[in-house]
């Protein structure tokens, strides 16, 4: 009871902090200088149609590199925390999945993966990109896991794709340092015409690598969790 009351008091204090923030909110009528710079320069400098993608991949590319590193660390720690359970041999209590799920997953999983690839390779033109495409690929892996819970994914392959795309990401960033304006500058390749698939310099390449990296990280989290024992 005391605990509930203390929690309520804390929430009320937090609400008292939020209330003036909410009351003082006035919607902007024009873009602030940073946003204005991005809005004016993205198309002519970088050749990308999706300004959010241009910010994530190029203007703040270093942040994104740090972010996929954080995601990698959390996937690695999940694997580490659950590592011991995987060594113990499982009793063979195999219940086969239904015919519908097995056949459906065989049909759908390649299509889902293809959709993921489509989403991250068009990240500079349409909404979506590496993170969304990676999550879609991981949901294809999830479908395979649901259809056959005994399936063991090659952690070696997932780890190989993950580290290969990570290394390629950093190498493209370093190439930007030598051949263009700075780390992760996308103008090492021709920027082309806005709206074309092969445009925006290295942005599609970098976002595809991010998509592969994020997809393999999510897949490894899902595979680690599904390989735990039932207690």
């Amino acid at each position: 009871m005391v605990r509930r009351f203390a929690a309520l008091l804390l929430i009320l204090a937090l609400g008292a902090v939020f209330l003036p923030l909410f009351l003082a909110y006035h919607p902007d009528t024009s873009l602030n200088p940073t946003a204005l710079y991005y809005a004016e320069r993205t198309a002519q400098d970088l050749g990308a149609a999706n300004i959010v993608t241009a910010i994530v991949v190029t203007y703040r590319g270093l942040d994104t590199l740090g972010e996929v590193t954080v995601l990698f660390l959390s996937a690695a720690i999940v694997g580490l925390v659950l590592a011991r359970d995987r060594l113990t041999p499982r009793p063979h209590t195999r219940v086969p999945a239904g015919e519908l799920l097995t056949t459906g997953s065989r049909l759908l999983a390649p299509l889902i993966m293809l959709l993921g690839v489509y989403i991250f390779s068009n990240g500079h033109l349409t909404p979506g990109g590496g993170f969304q495409g990676g999550a879609v690929i991981a949901s294809g892996v999830l479908l395979l896991l649901l259809a056959d819970p005994e399936r063991r994914f090659g952690h070696r392959i997932i780890g190989f794709i993950e580290s290969l795309s990570g290394v390629a990401y950093v190498l493209i960033g370093l190439a930007g340092l030598y051949y263009a304006g700075g780390f992760l500058d996308n103008r090492i390749l021709p920027t082309g015409q806005v709206g074309q698939l092969f445009s925006a310099g290295a942005i599609p390449l970098i976002y595809s690598l991010i998509g592969l990296k994020v997809g393999s990280e999510f897949s490894s989290i899902l595979a680690d969790l599904s390989e735990t024992e039932e207690l």
């Binding site: 873009l31 946003a35 991005y38 999706n50 300004i51 959010v52 806005v194 709206g195």
Partner: peptide, 20 residues
């Protein structure tokens, strides 16, 4: 904040929301 046929690059600063 996505430039396409209905939103030319020149009009972007006046018509898009804050992308950051």
């Amino acid at each position: 904040p996505i430039i396409d046929s209905t939103l030319p690059a020149g009009e972007a600063p006046a018509r898009i929301i804050d992308p950051v």
